[in-house]
Design a protein around this nucleic acid. Structure first.
Lengths: 181, 181
DNA sequence: CGCTACATGTAAGGTGTTACATGATTCC
DNA sequence: GGAATCATGTAACACCTTACATGTAGCG
């Protein structure tokens, strides 16, 4: 068991929704999973090669071997279920925004206001994206079976984004009081 | 500029609030910053040594050199302000819970419910901790100047935790509908 | 005087990103 | 046939954690 990381999980999982090339896996990780997961080329290709060696995925026949998609084998699906059953590894938090605000006294009120305003705008953008994705999800018949689960993850993003927006307003008000006093 | 990471920022920042030993820095990172930041021994000690070499921190005189706290020098404070002014580096998201729920179809409804229930309980615990810390903050006179900024970061945690709880209830309801249909 | 907490440091190893290198396919 | 995109792979490097190694201070 060389890889203790969750990269195998992400790759196998992506292929379980639809067979695809490594290139497409990366695009999907960026676009669809991007709100809560990330992988780079440097991870995806070695992982695919490893999964193929272990017989957990195989390339589907195609005239052009280069563009033939990978699909999970039966053992691959079994392995995926095992991996998904392991308890989620809590990733250590690294929030650069809050790190800066925590030491905001050194940074100054104005710079802090700017950071919070930027974060608020980012959250608005993300929220709009998620809402759009959610509507698109209801229209994609091919995802019928996976849709409820995908919906849940999109909802998590929406709740988070709305919380960020409300927090930003609250935080800006707190700083206003500070300046007034 | 050897270190592009934000470890220097965290260490210098901690010392800017109160001079302390490397050991204490680590405790503070775990307890206070722990909700949104993390550093390990293996990072903190080398970083402190580097900062000392660069004249950005120095040990305060004390009978026992071993337990004498580090304090930022004037240049150290300047450097801290520079570091804080750099734009926050967005950390790549790695949410093991949402990764599992996204592929929830493979995992099964029951296991998903359990994951969400666990996450909800965790959020409740965290929320209680944050509320306690917030109340304690108003009582610590030594933090007077930094308090409003610390308050903002605690609030961010509270908003996030409350969002997690609301999301969990929503998600569980969504799964209930799925089972019913 | 032994236990616990304080305090420092390093070495090995795993993880993950970036940059580079290479070529195929498709579309105009 | 040239450009953009698709597709794969690797090597170097940055980052970070864990485990180990070592010793001190204070307290009962």
């Amino acid at each position: 068991m060389p890889t203790h990381s969750q990269t195998q999980t992400a790759v196998l999982g992506a292929l379980s929704i639809r067979p695809m090339t490594g290139y497409a896996v990366r695009e999907n990780v960026q676009n669809v999973l991007g709100h809560f997961w990330s992988e780079s080329f440097g991870q995806i290709y070695p992982t695919l090669a490893e999964l193929e060696r272990e017989g957990l995925v195989e390339r589907q026949r195609s005239e052009h071997p280069r563009s033939s998609p990978f699909a999970p084998t039966a053992e691959g699906l079994t392995r995926l279920r095992e991996l998904l059953s392991e308890p989620p590894q809590p990733s250590r938090p690294r929030n650069g925004l809050l790190l800066r605000l925590f030491f905001g006294r050194q940074l100054g009120v104005e710079a802090c206001r700017q950071l919070i305003t930027d974060a608020r705008a980012q959250a608005e953008t993300q929220l709009a994206q998620l809402v759009a994705e959610r509507e698109q999800l209801t229209r994609d018949a091919s995802l019928r079976d996976a849709a409820p689960y995908i919906l849940i993850t999109i909802l998590a993003g929406e709740y988070g984004a709305r919380a960020s927006i409300a927090w930003a307003d609250d935080a800006l008000a707190t700083l206003d009081e500070l300046v007034a006093s």
